[in-house]
């Protein structure tokens, strides 16, 4: 310990002093370890609690969504867009060459095999987190017929890929699976 340096000590006590210093250092180290251990519960309490984690997956019934319609479901307190694509929307999406895309992905990569008409994406604009328009009847779907974010004008196409505006990425596809032809489990 620094404060003991002032202490004059005779040379014969050298060994004893080292041993004593060791005890002081050990005591202070233990105090330090204790302080770090105390910080653990104080910090982990901020992580999502068990009830929040329990809501991390939801089942959505999609049987009532007609082709051309979309709904917003709530997953982890965030909107998920579930759209039943019309054949012409699928065709429009497939007609776009990948080279024109900012974040190149095909529609097939963004849907599940056998359910290619179901486009399920997060309803969170990849620019700054606003919710794009386009799920409700008569809402502005933007120049590319998909979704349109009113905050800063990002426009998404019928496969919810970014085409214009400041957003860097396509609307994110969450993890999901079809548990039956009419029920999707998200998360």
């Amino acid at each position: 310990m620094a404060t003991l340096q002032d202490t004059p000590h005779d040379a014969t006590a050298e060994d004893g002093v080292r041993r004593r210093d060791f005890i002081n250092v050990a005591a202070i180290s233990f105090a330090g370890v204790g302080a770090v251990a105390v910080a653990v519960p104080l910090l982990t309490q901020m992580a999502p609690s068990a009830d929040v984690l329990a809501l991390a997956s939801i089942d959505v019934d999609i049987s009532k969504i007609q082709p051309g319609q979309a709904i917003k479901a709530s997953w982890r307190k965030q909107p998920v867009f579930i759209r039943n694509l019309m054949p012409k929307e699928i065709a429009a999406a497939n007609a776009v060459p990948l080279s024109e895309l900012r974040d190149p992905q095909t529609l097939a990569e963004r849907t599940k095999p056998g359910h290619s008409n179901w486009l399920i994406t997060m309803g969170v604009c990849t620019h700054l987190g606003c919710i794009p328009l386009g799920t409700g009847e008569g809402e502005n779907r933007g120049p590319f017929g998909g979704y349109f974010c009113p905050c800063h004008g990002s426009a998404y196409d019928t496969a919810a890929r970014i085409r214009k505006g400041p957003a860097p990425k396509n609307l994110q596809v969450p993890q999901y699976e079809f548990t039956s032809p009419t029920v999707v489990k998200i998360g």
Partner: peptide, 8 residues
């Protein structure tokens, strides 16, 4: 449900 909540 809160992490380490019982301890706190």
């Amino acid at each position: 449900d809160v992490n380490a909540g019982w301890l706190l």
